[in-house]
Write a protein that binds this DNA or RNA. Structure first.
Lengths: 231, 231
DNA sequence: GTCTATAAACGGATAGAC
DNA sequence: GTCTATCCGTTTATAGAC
């Protein structure tokens, strides 16, 4: 932004950095290539030179953001299970592991921090892209592993129930990491610790653990739903 | 789309319908006024005539979607509290009430059904708009009322903890209503009942109730976070 | 690899006839 | 209220000099 157009440093990375920042702030469609190159202090043409098109640039952003560490993600779960030596892992441990993994993902060194959260949120919620575009297949195995671990930890729940609870869990983590404050929308509250993802997730942990341990039977259907004359 | 430009029917509504459809599909920024009028089969100028600007059109969409029923939203909570006659409402009841309200909101007759869910999701996640633009002030009171009710139901939790759990709760509901399937992204699972919001929320209910009832102390911080060498 | 200049299309908005 | 024609700024992308 205030940087001189001077070369020497990696132009490609500069563009990626600027794009990452702007896209997470304003969204894909609302961010123009010119905004990006202005922010990066480079001429417009370089976007097309390096990435082919605006779309290509976007894909590069996601590719870099999701760029995997050397070890596969399940490696962590493997270690925990090895330690447990055949015994099922406790729900607390599983929830903890998943949250930690997600958190770690947001703290990758090559990421501006808040960036990844927004990318996650957008991948889940921005219409049009179905998510598959950006999420590499490796994550499938992770889900599968967690599913089996949760099944062992919660033998009273059937597979469908486990999956639904994982679904809620993943959703909440994405939601928290995306960082939009639904309650703040009401302008009434500013939550303590807001912005500190680690603290937030440590508040989330017992909440989710208890939720997973809820008794199976889906309880009575929503009480009298449909009989409420007016809400 | 295939409709003739013929008048007689309400043009304004035609534009709103088309805009609703397209915006929920592609998002605000990615939907141009011209796409909308093409879909509606009317000339471009009518958008500005009826709504002043593209932004005005958007606000009209949300206004219609959130268009309040005659009774204020808290009326329902009022009735429950009156019935309880001074006694605190149980967590189950509160969770149930909130979910039902949200669900009702998505089932308003004037809505194309899935539309509202996406609008909600986008209001929370689309970068740039902070949500205040669209969410009318009346919702503030609703949050405040729920907060007090939850505080009475869960006297062991301090206000901050209550707010955080409500935050998670609201997030999960928005997430579910927005309908993106995080697990489906992995292409491994298609959850039973998927798409049937009412069923999903009835699965959500016991999950959330148990979560709210989790013991206060935020538990140990994320176990050894920071000591995991690699995830 | 970097940059300038320009192409070609599309964006939202408006003036003014009907 | 409806529609055509047009203004004008901005968009993505490219051609071609350096």
């Amino acid at each position: 932004m205030s940087r001189p157009p001077k070369a020497g440093s990696d132009t490609r990375a500069r563009i990626l950095d600027a794009a990452e920042r702007l896209v997470t702030q304003h969204g894909y469609a609302a961010t123009s290539v010119r905004m990006i190159t202005r922010e990066a202090g480079v001429p417009v043409a370089l976007v097309n030179y390096h990435f082919g098109s605006k779309q290509g640039l976007m894909e590069a952003i996601y590719a870099r953001a999701l760029d995997r560490p050397e070890e596969p993600r399940v490696g962590y779960l493997d270690r925990l299970e090895a330690q447990a030596d055949g015994a099922p892992l406790a729900v607390e441990v599983l929830v903890d592991a998943f949250i930690s993994t997600a958190l770690r993902l947001t703290q990758r060194e090559n990421l501006s921090g808040t960036v990844f959260k927004q990318l996650i949120g957008q991948a889940f919620y921005e219409p049009g892209n179905s998510g598959e575009t950006f999420f590499p297949g490796e994550y499938q195995e992770t889900i599968e592993r967690y599913k089996r671990a949760f099944q062992r930890a919660l033998p009273l729940l059937d597979e469908a129930e486990i999956l639904w609870r994982m679904y809620f869990f993943v959703g909440i983590v994405a939601y928290v990491m995306a960082g939009k404050d639904a309650l703040q929308i009401t302008r009434l509250y500013r939550l303590a610790d807001a912005g500190d993802t680690e603290r937030i997730l440590s508040r989330l942990r017992p909440f989710i653990v208890a939720a997973f341990q809820a008794p199976p039977g889906q309880g009575p259907a929503l009480a009298g739903l449909g009989s409420y004359d007016r809400i």
